[in-house]
Amino acid sequence: MVLSLYSLHFMLLTFSIFGFLSLLDAGAPPPLTLDYYASTCPNALDIVKKEMECAVTSDPRNAAFILRLHFHDCFVQGCDGSVLLDDTFTLQGEKKAAININALKGFRIIDRIKNKLESECPSTVSCADILTIAARDAVILVGGPDWDVPLGRNDSKTAGYAMADQNLPTSDEGLVSIISKFVYQGLSVTDMVALSGAHTIGMGRCVNFRERIYGDFDASSRGNPSSETYLNSLKAMCPAAGGGDNDETAMDYVTPKLFDNYFYQTLLKGEGLLNSDQELYSSVFGIQTKKLVQMYAEDQMAFFEQFSESMVKLGNITNPDTSDNGEVRKNCRFVNT
Rank of each mutant, 00 (worst) to 15 (best):
V2I: 11
S7Q: 15
S7Y: 00
L8M: 05
L8F: 04
L8N: 06
L8S: 10
H9G: 07
F20Y: 11
L21E: 08
S22V: 11
A26E: 15
A28R: 06
P30N: 00
L32Y: 09
T33N: 07
L34I: 13
D35V: 13
S39E: 07
N43A: 13
A44W: 04
I47S: 04
V48Q: 01
K49G: 04
K50N: 09
A55C: 08
A55T: 03
A55W: 03
A55H: 01
V56C: 04
R61C: 04
N62R: 02
I66L: 01
I66N: 00
H70P: 07
F71N: 14
F71T: 15
F75H: 06
V76L: 03
C79N: 03
D80Y: 01
G81P: 11
S82K: 07
V83Y: 01
L84M: 15
D86S: 08
T88C: 02
F89I: 09
Q92P: 09
Q92K: 13
E94I: 12
K95F: 05
A98Q: 05
N102E: 10
A103G: 13
L104A: 15
K105S: 12
K105I: 12
R108W: 02
R108S: 07
I110G: 03
I110L: 02
K114C: 06
S119W: 01
E120T: 14
E120N: 10
I130H: 03
A138M: 06
V139A: 09
I140M: 06
L141G: 07
V142R: 03
P145Y: 02
P145A: 00
D146N: 12
V149I: 10
L151R: 00
N154V: 15
K157N: 10
A159M: 12
A164G: 08
A164C: 15
L168M: 09
T170R: 07
S177D: 12
K181Y: 12
L187T: 12
V193T: 03
M203D: 07
G204H: 03
V207M: 11
N208W: 04
N208I: 04
F209Y: 14
F209G: 11
E211T: 10
G215Y: 00
A219I: 12
S220Q: 14
R222H: 07
N224Y: 06
S226H: 09
T229H: 01
Y230I: 13
L231D: 15
K235T: 08
K235H: 10
A241S: 12
G244V: 05
T249C: 00
D252E: 04
Y253V: 06
K257H: 12
F263G: 14
T266K: 10
T266C: 07
L267A: 05
L267Q: 14
L268Y: 01
L268I: 14
L268G: 08
L268H: 08
D277R: 08
Q278K: 13
E279S: 15
E279L: 13
L280E: 11
L280Q: 11
Y281A: 04
S283E: 12
Q288D: 13
T289V: 11
K291D: 09
A297D: 13
E298W: 00
D299K: 09
M301W: 00
M301F: 02
E305G: 11
F307K: 11
F307H: 05
E309H: 13
M311I: 01
M311C: 05
V312F: 01
K313M: 06
G315H: 00
N316C: 15
N319G: 08
P320F: 00
N331P: 13
N331K: 13
C332K: 10
C332N: 06
R333P: 14
F334R: 01
